[in-house]
Design a protein around this nucleic acid. Sequence first.
DNA 1: ATGCTCGTTATTGGATCCAATAATGCAGTT
DNA 2: AACTGCATTATTGGATCCAATAACGAGCAT
Lengths: 229, 229
Amino acid sequence: MTAPMKPGQRVLFALRKMIVSGEIPDGARIAEIATAERFGVSRMPVRTALRTLEQEGLVAKLGRRGYAARGVTPAQIDDAIEVRGVLEGLAVRLIASRPIAPGFARKLKAVLAEGDALFAGDGFAPEHVDRFYSYNLAFHDLLLDASGNRAIGVALARNNHLPLASAAALALDWDDLANAREHLKAAHEEHLAVADAMLSGRADDAEQRMRRHARAALNPGVMPLVGPV
Amino acid sequence: MTAPMKPGQRVLFALRKMIVSGEIPDGARIAEIATAERFGVSRMPVRTALRTLEQEGLVAKLGRRGYAARGVTPAQIDDAIEVRGVLEGLAVRLIASRPIAPGFARKLKAVLAEGDALFAGDGFAPEHVDRFYSYNLAFHDLLLDASGNRAIGVALARNNHLPLASAAALALDWDDLANAREHLKAAHEEHLAVADAMLSGRADDAEQRMRRHARAALNPGVMPLVGPV
DNA sequence: ATGCTCGTTATTGGATCCAATAATGCAGTT
DNA sequence: AACTGCATTATTGGATCCAATAACGAGCAT
Protein backbone atom coordinates (compact mmCIF):
# COMPACT_ATOMS: atom_id res chain seq x y z
CA MET A 1 0.00 0.00 0.00
CA THR A 2 1.96 2.89 -1.33
CA ALA A 3 -0.34 5.39 0.26
CA PRO A 4 -0.28 8.65 -1.69
CA MET A 5 0.53 10.57 1.47
CA LYS A 6 0.96 14.29 1.43
CA PRO A 7 4.60 15.38 1.33
CA GLY A 8 4.46 17.09 4.70
CA GLN A 9 3.11 14.08 6.54
CA ARG A 10 5.34 11.76 4.63
CA VAL A 11 8.49 13.64 5.54
CA LEU A 12 7.38 14.01 9.13
CA PHE A 13 6.66 10.32 9.57
CA ALA A 14 9.78 9.26 7.72
CA LEU A 15 12.06 11.50 9.74
CA ARG A 16 10.42 10.45 12.97
CA LYS A 17 10.85 6.81 12.11
CA MET A 18 14.45 7.28 11.04
CA ILE A 19 15.30 9.03 14.27
CA VAL A 20 13.62 6.60 16.64
CA SER A 21 14.98 3.64 14.71
CA GLY A 22 18.49 5.00 14.88
CA GLU A 23 18.85 5.21 11.12
CA ILE A 24 19.72 8.81 11.78
CA PRO A 25 22.22 8.45 14.61
CA ASP A 26 22.09 10.54 17.73
CA GLY A 27 23.63 13.95 17.31
CA ALA A 28 23.64 13.81 13.52
CA ARG A 29 23.03 17.15 11.89
CA ILE A 30 19.90 17.42 9.82
CA ALA A 31 20.12 20.11 7.15
CA GLU A 32 17.01 21.30 5.37
CA ILE A 33 18.44 21.22 1.87
CA ALA A 34 20.03 17.80 2.05
CA THR A 35 16.92 16.29 3.60
CA ALA A 36 14.66 17.92 1.06
CA GLU A 37 16.72 16.55 -1.82
CA ARG A 38 16.82 13.15 -0.22
CA PHE A 39 13.04 12.99 -0.12
CA GLY A 40 12.59 14.70 -3.46
CA VAL A 41 10.44 17.46 -2.00
CA SER A 42 10.82 21.14 -1.37
CA ARG A 43 12.44 22.53 1.73
CA MET A 44 9.07 23.61 3.09
CA PRO A 45 7.71 20.26 4.28
CA VAL A 46 11.09 19.53 5.81
CA ARG A 47 10.94 22.79 7.68
CA THR A 48 7.52 22.18 9.13
CA ALA A 49 8.44 18.60 9.98
CA LEU A 50 11.55 19.72 11.81
CA ARG A 51 9.53 22.25 13.75
CA THR A 52 7.12 19.55 14.81
CA LEU A 53 9.92 17.17 15.71
CA GLU A 54 11.51 19.90 17.75
CA GLN A 55 8.29 20.24 19.72
CA GLU A 56 8.32 16.50 20.21
CA GLY A 57 11.86 16.59 21.48
CA LEU A 58 13.22 14.37 18.74
CA VAL A 59 15.47 17.04 17.29
CA ALA A 60 17.20 20.02 18.85
CA LYS A 61 17.74 23.34 17.20
CA LEU A 62 21.39 24.14 16.69
CA GLY A 63 21.48 27.88 16.38
CA ARG A 64 22.17 28.71 12.77
CA ARG A 65 23.54 25.28 12.01
CA GLY A 66 20.19 23.61 11.56
CA TYR A 67 18.94 20.79 13.72
CA ALA A 68 20.48 17.76 15.35
CA ALA A 69 18.78 14.43 15.88
CA ARG A 70 18.25 13.32 19.43
CA GLY A 71 18.49 9.58 19.51
CA VAL A 72 15.88 7.71 21.48
CA THR A 73 17.43 5.42 24.03
CA PRO A 74 15.59 2.66 25.87
CA ALA A 75 16.04 4.71 29.01
CA GLN A 76 14.14 7.57 27.42
CA ILE A 77 11.31 5.25 26.54
CA ASP A 78 11.20 4.09 30.12
CA ASP A 79 11.10 7.72 31.16
CA ALA A 80 8.22 8.43 28.84
CA ILE A 81 6.31 5.42 30.10
CA GLU A 82 6.77 6.60 33.65
CA VAL A 83 5.43 10.01 32.68
CA ARG A 84 2.48 8.40 30.99
CA GLY A 85 1.72 6.38 34.08
CA VAL A 86 1.78 9.46 36.24
CA LEU A 87 -0.47 11.42 33.89
CA GLU A 88 -2.98 8.64 33.40
CA GLY A 89 -2.79 8.07 37.13
CA LEU A 90 -3.85 11.66 37.62
CA ALA A 91 -6.73 11.12 35.23
CA VAL A 92 -8.16 8.20 37.18
CA ARG A 93 -7.52 9.99 40.46
CA LEU A 94 -9.59 12.91 39.27
CA ILE A 95 -12.37 10.62 38.13
CA ALA A 96 -12.38 8.68 41.37
CA SER A 97 -12.39 11.75 43.58
CA ARG A 98 -15.51 13.18 41.99
CA PRO A 99 -19.04 11.81 41.79
CA ILE A 100 -19.28 9.30 38.99
CA ALA A 101 -21.42 10.55 36.11
CA PRO A 102 -23.96 7.93 35.07
CA GLY A 103 -23.00 8.29 31.46
CA PHE A 104 -19.39 7.58 32.26
CA ALA A 105 -20.21 4.50 34.31
CA ARG A 106 -22.26 3.18 31.45
CA LYS A 107 -19.61 3.79 28.84
CA LEU A 108 -16.96 2.31 31.08
CA LYS A 109 -18.94 -0.87 31.56
CA ALA A 110 -19.51 -1.11 27.85
CA VAL A 111 -15.82 -0.80 27.11
CA LEU A 112 -14.84 -3.31 29.77
CA ALA A 113 -17.42 -5.70 28.40
CA GLU A 114 -15.45 -5.78 25.17
CA GLY A 115 -12.45 -6.93 27.13
CA ASP A 116 -14.47 -9.54 29.01
CA ALA A 117 -15.76 -10.92 25.73
CA LEU A 118 -12.23 -11.18 24.41
CA PHE A 119 -11.12 -13.51 27.15
CA ALA A 120 -14.38 -15.39 27.63
CA GLY A 121 -13.18 -18.34 25.59
CA ASP A 122 -9.86 -20.08 25.70
CA GLY A 123 -8.76 -19.50 22.15
CA PHE A 124 -6.64 -16.63 21.00
CA ALA A 125 -5.93 -15.69 17.43
CA PRO A 126 -4.13 -12.75 15.87
CA GLU A 127 -7.54 -11.26 15.27
CA HIS A 128 -8.00 -11.09 19.03
CA VAL A 129 -4.92 -8.94 19.27
CA ASP A 130 -6.51 -6.43 16.92
CA ARG A 131 -9.65 -6.40 18.99
CA PHE A 132 -7.65 -5.93 22.15
CA TYR A 133 -5.88 -3.05 20.49
CA SER A 134 -9.19 -1.29 19.86
CA TYR A 135 -10.50 -2.11 23.31
CA ASN A 136 -7.31 -0.92 24.99
CA LEU A 137 -7.33 2.34 23.08
CA ALA A 138 -10.99 2.93 23.90
CA PHE A 139 -10.33 2.34 27.58
CA HIS A 140 -7.48 4.78 27.82
CA ASP A 141 -9.22 7.39 25.68
CA LEU A 142 -12.32 7.16 27.80
CA LEU A 143 -10.35 7.81 30.96
CA LEU A 144 -8.56 10.75 29.41
CA ASP A 145 -11.87 12.20 28.29
CA ALA A 146 -13.69 11.56 31.53
CA SER A 147 -10.99 13.17 33.61
CA GLY A 148 -12.17 16.52 32.34
CA ASN A 149 -8.58 17.74 32.38
CA ARG A 150 -7.48 18.57 28.88
CA ALA A 151 -3.98 19.44 30.00
CA ILE A 152 -3.34 15.76 30.62
CA GLY A 153 -4.02 14.88 27.02
CA VAL A 154 -1.93 17.76 25.78
CA ALA A 155 0.99 16.71 27.94
CA LEU A 156 0.60 13.12 26.81
CA ALA A 157 0.63 13.96 23.12
CA ARG A 158 4.41 13.80 22.87
CA ASN A 159 4.86 10.44 24.50
CA ASN A 160 2.66 8.85 21.91
CA HIS A 161 5.24 9.67 19.29
CA LEU A 162 7.87 7.53 20.95
CA PRO A 163 7.69 3.84 20.12
CA LEU A 164 6.32 1.72 22.92
CA ALA A 165 5.62 4.73 25.06
CA SER A 166 2.00 5.24 24.11
CA ALA A 167 -0.91 3.32 25.48
CA ALA A 168 -1.59 2.27 21.90
CA ALA A 169 1.64 0.31 21.81
CA LEU A 170 1.24 -3.29 22.85
CA ALA A 171 4.36 -5.23 23.65
CA LEU A 172 3.87 -8.90 23.09
CA ASP A 173 5.45 -11.95 21.62
CA TRP A 174 3.81 -12.82 18.33
CA ASP A 175 5.40 -16.23 18.25
CA ASP A 176 3.69 -17.28 21.44
CA LEU A 177 0.05 -16.38 21.24
CA ALA A 178 -0.79 -18.26 24.43
CA ASN A 179 1.72 -16.17 26.30
CA ALA A 180 0.41 -13.05 24.62
CA ARG A 181 -3.09 -13.95 25.76
CA GLU A 182 -1.92 -14.18 29.37
CA HIS A 183 -0.11 -10.87 29.02
CA LEU A 184 -3.12 -9.06 27.62
CA LYS A 185 -5.49 -10.79 30.01
CA ALA A 186 -3.41 -9.47 32.89
CA ALA A 187 -3.69 -5.99 31.40
CA HIS A 188 -7.45 -6.38 31.15
CA GLU A 189 -7.64 -7.46 34.77
CA GLU A 190 -5.66 -4.37 35.72
CA HIS A 191 -8.24 -2.34 33.83
CA LEU A 192 -10.98 -4.00 35.83
CA ALA A 193 -9.18 -3.28 39.08
CA VAL A 194 -8.69 0.36 38.13
CA ALA A 195 -12.33 0.66 37.15
CA ASP A 196 -13.44 -0.85 40.42
CA ALA A 197 -11.25 1.52 42.38
CA MET A 198 -12.60 4.49 40.44
CA LEU A 199 -16.24 3.55 40.82
CA SER A 200 -15.67 2.93 44.53
CA GLY A 201 -14.08 6.32 44.95
CA ARG A 202 -10.72 4.91 46.02
CA ALA A 203 -8.70 7.64 44.35
CA ASP A 204 -5.29 6.71 45.77
CA ASP A 205 -5.78 3.08 44.88
CA ALA A 206 -6.90 3.88 41.36
CA GLU A 207 -3.89 6.11 40.79
CA GLN A 208 -1.40 3.58 42.11
CA ARG A 209 -2.86 0.81 40.01
CA MET A 210 -2.82 2.93 36.90
CA ARG A 211 0.84 3.76 37.40
CA ARG A 212 1.74 0.13 37.77
CA HIS A 213 -0.35 -0.68 34.74
CA ALA A 214 1.66 1.71 32.60
CA ARG A 215 4.95 0.27 33.78
CA ALA A 216 3.77 -3.27 33.15
CA ALA A 217 3.14 -2.48 29.52
CA LEU A 218 6.81 -2.74 28.66
CA ASN A 219 8.33 -6.19 28.44
CA PRO A 220 11.93 -6.55 27.32
CA GLY A 221 12.68 -8.50 24.18
CA VAL A 222 9.26 -8.65 22.62
CA MET A 223 7.86 -7.50 19.34
CA PRO A 224 5.93 -4.29 19.53
CA LEU A 225 2.62 -3.73 17.81
CA VAL A 226 2.71 -0.12 16.91
CA GLY A 227 -0.46 1.65 16.03
CA PRO A 228 -0.97 4.98 14.37
CA VAL A 229 1.45 7.35 15.95
CA MET B 1 11.53 48.85 23.97
CA THR B 2 10.36 48.14 20.49
CA ALA B 3 12.52 45.08 20.27
CA PRO B 4 13.31 44.38 16.62
CA MET B 5 12.04 40.83 16.99
CA LYS B 6 12.04 38.45 14.10
CA PRO B 7 8.67 38.18 12.38
CA GLY B 8 8.19 34.54 13.28
CA GLN B 9 8.74 35.02 16.99
CA ARG B 10 6.78 38.24 16.97
CA VAL B 11 3.72 36.67 15.39
CA LEU B 12 3.97 33.63 17.64
CA PHE B 13 4.17 35.66 20.82
CA ALA B 14 1.49 38.08 19.71
CA LEU B 15 -0.96 35.36 18.77
CA ARG B 16 -0.27 33.47 21.97
CA LYS B 17 -0.86 36.57 24.02
CA MET B 18 -4.03 37.45 22.15
CA ILE B 19 -5.45 33.99 22.66
CA VAL B 20 -4.68 33.65 26.34
CA SER B 21 -5.85 37.19 27.02
CA GLY B 22 -9.11 36.56 25.25
CA GLU B 23 -8.52 39.27 22.68
CA ILE B 24 -9.14 36.50 20.20
CA PRO B 25 -12.27 34.92 21.63
CA ASP B 26 -12.70 31.21 22.06
CA GLY B 27 -13.69 29.44 18.89
CA ALA B 28 -12.80 32.34 16.62
CA ARG B 29 -11.46 31.26 13.26
CA ILE B 30 -7.91 32.25 12.51
CA ALA B 31 -7.19 32.47 8.81
CA GLU B 32 -3.64 32.66 7.56
CA ILE B 33 -4.19 35.45 5.09
CA ALA B 34 -6.12 37.78 7.35
CA THR B 35 -3.65 37.27 10.19
CA ALA B 36 -0.69 37.83 7.93
CA GLU B 37 -2.13 41.09 6.65
CA ARG B 38 -2.97 42.17 10.15
CA PHE B 39 0.64 41.79 11.24
CA GLY B 40 2.05 43.07 8.00
CA VAL B 41 4.06 39.94 7.36
CA SER B 42 3.96 37.08 4.95
CA ARG B 43 1.79 34.04 5.47
CA MET B 44 4.83 31.96 6.32
CA PRO B 45 5.51 33.14 9.88
CA VAL B 46 1.79 32.86 10.58
CA ARG B 47 1.85 29.31 9.37
CA THR B 48 4.73 28.26 11.56
CA ALA B 49 3.24 30.09 14.51
CA LEU B 50 -0.08 28.32 14.07
CA ARG B 51 1.68 24.99 13.91
CA THR B 52 3.43 25.72 17.16
CA LEU B 53 0.27 26.95 18.82
CA GLU B 54 -1.48 23.79 17.68
CA GLN B 55 1.19 21.76 19.44
CA GLU B 56 0.63 23.85 22.52
CA GLY B 57 -3.09 23.26 22.40
CA LEU B 58 -3.96 26.92 21.99
CA VAL B 59 -5.48 26.48 18.54
CA ALA B 60 -7.20 23.55 16.90
CA LYS B 61 -6.99 22.64 13.27
CA LEU B 62 -10.28 22.92 11.51
CA GLY B 63 -9.96 20.69 8.51
CA ARG B 64 -9.67 22.89 5.47
CA ARG B 65 -11.12 25.92 7.18
CA GLY B 66 -7.93 26.92 8.95
CA TYR B 67 -7.54 27.06 12.70
CA ALA B 68 -9.76 28.02 15.59
CA ALA B 69 -8.61 29.65 18.81
CA ARG B 70 -9.09 27.68 21.97
CA GLY B 71 -9.78 30.12 24.73
CA VAL B 72 -7.97 29.61 27.97
CA THR B 73 -10.39 29.37 30.86
CA PRO B 74 -9.40 29.57 34.53
CA ALA B 75 -10.39 25.94 34.79
CA GLN B 76 -7.85 25.04 32.13
CA ILE B 77 -5.17 26.88 34.04
CA ASP B 78 -6.10 24.92 37.13
CA ASP B 79 -5.84 21.79 35.06
CA ALA B 80 -2.39 22.72 33.84
CA ILE B 81 -1.25 23.50 37.36
CA GLU B 82 -2.45 20.13 38.52
CA VAL B 83 -0.51 18.49 35.70
CA ARG B 84 2.56 20.47 36.65
CA GLY B 85 2.24 19.33 40.23
CA VAL B 86 2.02 15.71 39.20
CA LEU B 87 5.00 15.96 36.88
CA GLU B 88 7.20 17.81 39.33
CA GLY B 89 6.00 15.39 41.96
CA LEU B 90 7.31 12.57 39.83
CA ALA B 91 10.63 14.38 39.53
CA VAL B 92 11.15 14.64 43.28
CA ARG B 93 9.90 11.09 43.75
CA LEU B 94 12.55 9.84 41.38
CA ILE B 95 15.23 11.85 43.10
CA ALA B 96 14.18 10.66 46.54
CA SER B 97 13.99 7.02 45.57
CA ARG B 98 17.57 6.92 44.31
CA PRO B 99 20.85 7.51 46.12
CA ILE B 100 21.49 11.22 46.36
CA ALA B 101 24.40 12.34 44.23
CA PRO B 102 26.82 14.50 46.23
CA GLY B 103 26.84 17.12 43.50
CA PHE B 104 23.09 17.40 43.61
CA ALA B 105 23.00 17.76 47.39
CA ARG B 106 25.57 20.53 47.17
CA LYS B 107 23.73 22.40 44.44
CA LEU B 108 20.42 21.98 46.24
CA LYS B 109 21.84 23.45 49.44
CA ALA B 110 23.31 26.34 47.50
CA VAL B 111 19.98 27.13 45.88
CA LEU B 112 18.07 26.87 49.12
CA ALA B 113 20.61 29.15 50.77
CA GLU B 114 19.52 31.85 48.35
CA GLY B 115 16.01 31.48 49.66
CA ASP B 116 17.16 31.52 53.26
CA ALA B 117 19.06 34.73 52.63
CA LEU B 118 15.98 36.31 51.12
CA PHE B 119 13.93 35.89 54.26
CA ALA B 120 16.73 36.37 56.79
CA GLY B 121 15.73 39.94 57.47
CA ASP B 122 12.30 41.38 58.03
CA GLY B 123 12.21 43.79 55.13
CA PHE B 124 10.82 43.06 51.74
CA ALA B 125 11.17 45.23 48.68
CA PRO B 126 10.18 44.72 45.07
CA GLU B 127 13.79 43.80 44.46
CA HIS B 128 13.30 40.81 46.72
CA VAL B 129 10.55 39.60 44.46
CA ASP B 130 12.96 39.55 41.56
CA ARG B 131 15.46 37.61 43.61
CA PHE B 132 12.79 35.16 44.64
CA TYR B 133 11.86 34.76 41.02
CA SER B 134 15.40 33.70 40.17
CA TYR B 135 15.69 31.47 43.20
CA ASN B 136 12.35 29.82 42.52
CA LEU B 137 13.25 29.13 38.91
CA ALA B 138 16.62 27.71 39.91
CA PHE B 139 14.98 25.40 42.42
CA HIS B 140 12.46 23.97 39.99
CA ASP B 141 15.00 23.69 37.19
CA LEU B 142 17.41 21.88 39.44
CA LEU B 143 14.79 19.30 40.36
CA LEU B 144 13.84 18.77 36.74
CA ASP B 145 17.47 18.29 35.82
CA ALA B 146 18.31 16.04 38.75
CA SER B 147 15.37 13.76 38.10
CA GLY B 148 17.24 12.40 35.11
CA ASN B 149 13.94 11.99 33.29
CA ARG B 150 13.87 14.21 30.26
CA ALA B 151 10.33 13.26 29.40
CA ILE B 152 9.14 15.25 32.38
CA GLY B 153 10.64 18.45 31.05
CA VAL B 154 9.29 17.76 27.60
CA ALA B 155 5.80 17.21 28.93
CA LEU B 156 6.05 20.32 31.07
CA ALA B 157 7.08 22.55 28.20
CA ARG B 158 3.50 23.21 27.14
CA ASN B 159 2.18 24.22 30.52
CA ASN B 160 4.72 26.99 30.70
CA HIS B 161 3.00 28.71 27.83
CA LEU B 162 -0.17 29.17 29.79
CA PRO B 163 -0.20 32.16 32.10
CA LEU B 164 0.14 31.30 35.75
CA ALA B 165 0.61 27.65 34.99
CA SER B 166 4.39 27.60 34.94
CA ALA B 167 6.59 27.49 37.98
CA ALA B 168 8.04 30.76 36.77
CA ALA B 169 4.72 32.50 37.35
CA LEU B 170 4.39 34.00 40.78
CA ALA B 171 0.97 35.05 41.92
CA LEU B 172 1.14 37.76 44.48
CA ASP B 173 -0.37 41.03 45.51
CA TRP B 174 1.94 43.86 44.59
CA ASP B 175 0.02 46.31 46.71
CA ASP B 176 0.71 44.39 49.88
CA LEU B 177 4.38 43.51 50.00
CA ALA B 178 4.15 42.24 53.56
CA ASN B 179 1.51 39.78 52.48
CA ALA B 180 3.56 38.87 49.46
CA ARG B 181 6.51 38.19 51.71
CA GLU B 182 4.47 35.75 53.76
CA HIS B 183 3.21 34.09 50.62
CA LEU B 184 6.67 33.60 49.16
CA LYS B 185 8.12 32.64 52.53
CA ALA B 186 5.57 29.86 52.75
CA ALA B 187 6.63 28.70 49.29
CA HIS B 188 10.25 28.70 50.39
CA GLU B 189 9.39 26.64 53.45
CA GLU B 190 7.62 24.18 51.20
CA HIS B 191 10.81 23.98 49.19
CA LEU B 192 12.73 23.21 52.36
CA ALA B 193 10.26 20.51 53.32
CA VAL B 194 10.46 18.93 49.88
CA ALA B 195 14.25 19.05 50.01
CA ASP B 196 14.29 17.43 53.41
CA ALA B 197 11.97 14.68 52.25
CA MET B 198 14.12 14.05 49.19
CA LEU B 199 17.41 13.94 51.07
CA SER B 200 15.84 11.63 53.62
CA GLY B 201 14.61 9.30 50.90
CA ARG B 202 10.95 9.80 51.78
CA ALA B 203 9.76 9.52 48.18
CA ASP B 204 6.02 9.48 48.88
CA ASP B 205 6.27 12.44 51.20
CA ALA B 206 8.34 14.43 48.75
CA GLU B 207 5.88 13.78 45.94
CA GLN B 208 2.84 14.72 48.00
CA ARG B 209 4.44 17.93 49.20
CA MET B 210 5.46 18.89 45.68
CA ARG B 211 1.92 18.42 44.43
CA ARG B 212 0.52 20.60 47.17
CA HIS B 213 3.21 23.15 46.49
CA ALA B 214 2.10 23.45 42.88
CA ARG B 215 -1.52 23.89 43.81
CA ALA B 216 -0.67 26.50 46.41
CA ALA B 217 0.95 28.65 43.76
CA LEU B 218 -2.36 29.92 42.49
CA ASN B 219 -4.17 32.54 44.51
CA PRO B 220 -7.37 34.00 43.17
CA GLY B 221 -7.59 37.69 42.53
CA VAL B 222 -3.93 38.59 42.60
CA MET B 223 -1.65 40.16 40.08
CA PRO B 224 0.58 37.72 38.29
CA LEU B 225 4.26 38.25 37.69
CA VAL B 226 4.82 36.56 34.42
CA GLY B 227 8.28 35.65 33.38
CA PRO B 228 9.62 34.72 30.01
CA VAL B 229 7.18 32.33 28.47
C1' DA C 1 -40.84 25.05 -5.55
C1' DT C 2 -37.21 22.11 -4.35
C1' DG C 3 -33.38 19.22 -4.97
C1' DC C 4 -29.31 18.21 -7.55
C1' DT C 5 -25.34 19.41 -10.12
C1' DC C 6 -21.81 22.12 -11.88
C1' DG C 7 -19.00 26.19 -11.77
C1' DT C 8 -16.83 29.69 -9.10
C1' DT C 9 -14.14 31.12 -5.31
C1' DA C 10 -11.82 31.20 -1.10
C1' DT C 11 -8.20 29.01 1.47
C1' DT C 12 -4.60 25.92 2.66
C1' DG C 13 -0.20 23.34 1.30
C1' DG C 14 3.90 23.19 -1.62
C1' DA C 15 7.62 25.09 -4.52
C1' DT C 16 10.70 28.51 -5.82
C1' DC C 17 13.08 32.75 -5.14
C1' DC C 18 15.36 36.34 -2.29
C1' DA C 19 17.63 38.37 1.81
C1' DA C 20 20.21 38.13 6.04
C1' DT C 21 23.69 36.00 8.70
C1' DA C 22 27.24 33.41 10.49
C1' DA C 23 30.83 30.04 9.66
C1' DT C 24 34.90 29.08 7.05
C1' DG C 25 38.86 29.61 4.35
C1' DC C 26 42.36 32.46 2.36
C1' DA C 27 45.51 36.03 2.29
C1' DG C 28 48.17 39.54 4.18
C1' DT C 29 50.78 41.29 7.87
C1' DT C 30 53.64 41.20 11.89
C1' DA D 1 54.95 30.87 11.11
C1' DA D 2 50.96 32.44 13.52
C1' DC D 3 47.27 35.58 14.02
C1' DT D 4 43.87 38.67 12.35
C1' DG D 5 40.87 40.66 9.05
C1' DC D 6 38.10 40.22 5.00
C1' DA D 7 35.69 37.89 1.48
C1' DT D 8 33.28 33.97 0.02
C1' DT D 9 29.97 30.57 0.75
C1' DA D 10 26.77 27.70 2.85
C1' DT D 11 22.46 27.71 5.29
C1' DT D 12 18.40 29.27 7.52
C1' DG D 13 14.20 32.41 7.56
C1' DG D 14 10.90 35.14 4.87
C1' DA D 15 8.20 36.44 0.76
C1' DT D 16 5.88 35.45 -3.33
C1' DC D 17 3.88 32.40 -6.62
C1' DC D 18 1.41 28.19 -8.04
C1' DA D 19 -1.52 24.06 -7.51
C1' DA D 20 -5.01 21.33 -5.28
C1' DT D 21 -9.16 21.06 -2.83
C1' DA D 22 -13.31 21.75 -0.62
C1' DA D 23 -16.99 24.98 0.58
C1' DC D 24 -20.52 27.83 -1.39
C1' DG D 25 -23.74 29.61 -4.56
C1' DA D 26 -26.29 29.87 -8.66
C1' DG D 27 -28.72 27.74 -12.25
C1' DC D 28 -31.29 24.07 -14.23
C1' DA D 29 -34.25 20.19 -14.28
C1' DT D 30 -37.93 17.69 -12.37
